[in-house]
């Protein structure tokens, strides 16, 4: 029951946003004229707005509501337990492990992908033969699902040793780099999850390259030329002319990668299940919610994820929209 009223109030607030302009103005005819001007447009987008209002904001709100209940088991319970789920979660050891894992993963994944993507963009920037080929090779993993990626890499990240050495370790062995042997995500170290940054980086560093490449090429040649005329060496041209223009690109890449690392689920899920060393909040949410039935806990984890992502995404959207308006 509470649900029904909640969701109507949710879509109600959405409608209030959309319909700000429908309040009767001082001059009725003017209003009618304006209404005729933008009314049809509003009408055309309203189905989408209503759907998104419900499926995004309504559901997010509903999920947050669940995080304040004691809902456990298969029958929904909409009581109010305050912030109990949150304080329990902060004391929950698995969640603490998950957060630490996520931090390690995010750090290695973003750092690695940025570095690799940047290097690739720099290598391609000046124009090389077969550039299209190189670009395609660096980008194609983006077209493959995380599930397929995980299934391939699960075999590459095999940690068998001795006779049963396989995967990347075997490859290292074959090319005389045997000392690189690693237990990957099965090592007891708390850096185990960093191994997953390998498939994740494989999948996404091409994206970073594409962003940087677009950024590098949007630097007007005249600007560089001007600096060169002033006698600046190429390195200085890069530092003083190109670098400042790449900062926004860097920011985009960091934000995109950070939000992907927080919400990715299937890559970890398909590489190794029930391995706490590569457990993240996104996985814990799935595994605690649906089978054992800890719905309130699952909703709490999801809410925290939402806030984590909003923390990087909201300023980014705000900044993007503002930049666009300035143009």
């Amino acid at each position: 029951m509470t649900q029904t009223s909640r969701s109507t109030s949710e879509s109600g607030s959405g409608a209030a946003v959309v319909g700000r302009g429908t309040q009767p103005g001082p001059k009725a005819s003017k209003v009618r004229r304006r209404l005729r001007a933008w009314g049809p447009g509003l009408l055309l987008v309203s189905p989408s707005l209503v759907l998104l209002g419900i499926f995004v904001y309504g559901f997010l709100g509903w999920n947050i509501r669940v995080s304040f209940t004691s809902w456990r088991g298969q029958t929904p319970v909409y009581d109010w337990v305050g912030t109990r789920n949150y304080s329990e979660l902060f004391d929950n050891e698995r969640f603490q492990i998950d957060v630490r894992n996520l931090a390690v993963f995010t750090f290695v994944f973003i750092g690695g992908s940025l570095l690799l993507g940047f290097v690739m963009a720099m290598l391609l920037e000046k124009g090389v033969r077969f550039e299209a080929f190189f670009r395609s090779v660096f980008l194609f993993p983006m077209a493959i699902s995380f599930i397929a990626t995980a299934i391939i890499w699960r075999w590459l990240l095999n940690n068998g040793s001795g006779e049963s050495t396989a995967g990347l370790n075997k490859l290292f062995d074959n090319i005389g780099l045997g000392f690189l042997f690693s237990d990957w995500h099965k090592t007891p170290s708390s850096w185990a999850i960093a191994a997953i940054a390998l498939p994740a980086g494989w999948a996404l560093s091409g994206y970073v390259m594409a962003l940087f490449l677009a950024g590098l090429r949007s630097v007007p040649e005249e600007l560089r030329e001007a600096a060169r005329v002033d006698g600046a060496p190429e390195r200085k041209v890069f530092w003083h002319v190109v670098r400042p223009m790449l900062l926004p690109v860097l920011m985009s890449a960091v934000v995109i990668l950070a939000h992907i690392s927080m919400k990715t689920f299937d890559l970890f899920y398909a590489i190794d299940q029930g391995n706490l060393r590569i457990d993240t909040p996104a996985l814990y949410m799935w595994f605690t919610t649906f089978q054992p039935g800890f719905f309130a806990r699952g909703a709490t984890i999801a809410t925290l994820l939402l806030f984590g992502i909003a923390l990087v995404i909201v300023p980014y959207i705000w900044w993007s929209v503002r930049t666009e308006r300035r143009k």
Binding site: E93, R94, L276, P292, G293, F294
Partner: peptide
Amino acid sequence: NNAFKGEIDTALQIFVQ
């Protein structure tokens, strides 16, 4: 039951480590 077992599963994973 599933809830109790779910919690044991998690605790055991940590315990094993």
